[in-house]
């Protein structure tokens, strides 16, 4: 039994997706060995699937993540006015008084931003590991070439820390390697 070119074209997509029976697959493979036209169609279609599967074809616009997260946060119901809201407010007050008490022992629970020209990141995953330089202002994806290092510092003074810690120390996201976490 043989298959015609028309039958091959009808099934070529299913063939690529592994959605044809073993019998039809064997028949199609026999056909491809004999038919240059159908082989050309198969190779071209494979190329199409291969090229379009690449993530580089469409890039997320810069700031897209930050923008939807900001809108989402704005759309979330405010606890104000509800019983839970009052409970949260009381809890917050307790926390605040607690933090004042703690402040006597720790004078800098959250450092000011190290860069006055930058802005804090939005939606940075707190557990993401980032690199910071002791004398730098920004945190980076490990290996980012824009990580600021002073040449005279032989030790490098570069630390790998969780993003939450970097933020706590006043570092802001690198505008190049972590631009998706900047709101603009």
């Amino acid at each position: 039994m043989v298959v015609s070119c028309e039958q091959v074209w009808r099934e070529i997509s299913n063939y690529l997706d592994g959605e044809v029976s073993p019998e039809l697959r064997a028949l199609m493979e026999a056909h491809f060995r004999e038919c240059k036209h159908c082989t050309a169609v198969l190779d071209g279609t494979k190329n199409i699937v291969h090229l379009y599967a690449d993530d580089r074809l469409v890039e997320l616009p810069a700031g897209f993540s930050a923008r939807w997260q900001k809108r989402l946060a704005e759309s979330m119901p405010s606890p104000r006015g509800t019983v839970y809201g009052w409970l949260i407010a009381v809890a917050a007050l307790a926390l605040l008084s607690g933090s004042f008490a703690l402040a006597r022992f720790d004078s800098s629970p959250l450092a000011a931003l190290r860069s006055y020209h930058s802005e804090p990141g939005v939606g940075v995953p707190p557990e993401m590991m980032v690199e910071i330089a002791t004398d730098g202002k920004t945190f980076h994806v490990p290996g980012c070439k824009y990580l600021h290092k002073h040449e005279h510092e032989a030790e490098g003074e570069v630390r790998l820390v969780a993003a939450a810690e970097a933020i706590r120390e006043g570092y802001v996201p690198c505008v190049r390697c972590l631009r998706q976490y900047l709101s603009r």
């Binding site: 240059k36 050309a40 291969h50 690449d54």
Partner: peptide
Amino acid sequence: GTYTPRDFADWREIPSEALERSEIRTLLA
């Protein structure tokens, strides 16, 4: 109905590095 391919040119495998070139990405888009 059956779609009849119009072009039977022989394709070589296109390396994914081709996508580094913006004109290729534009063509595909």
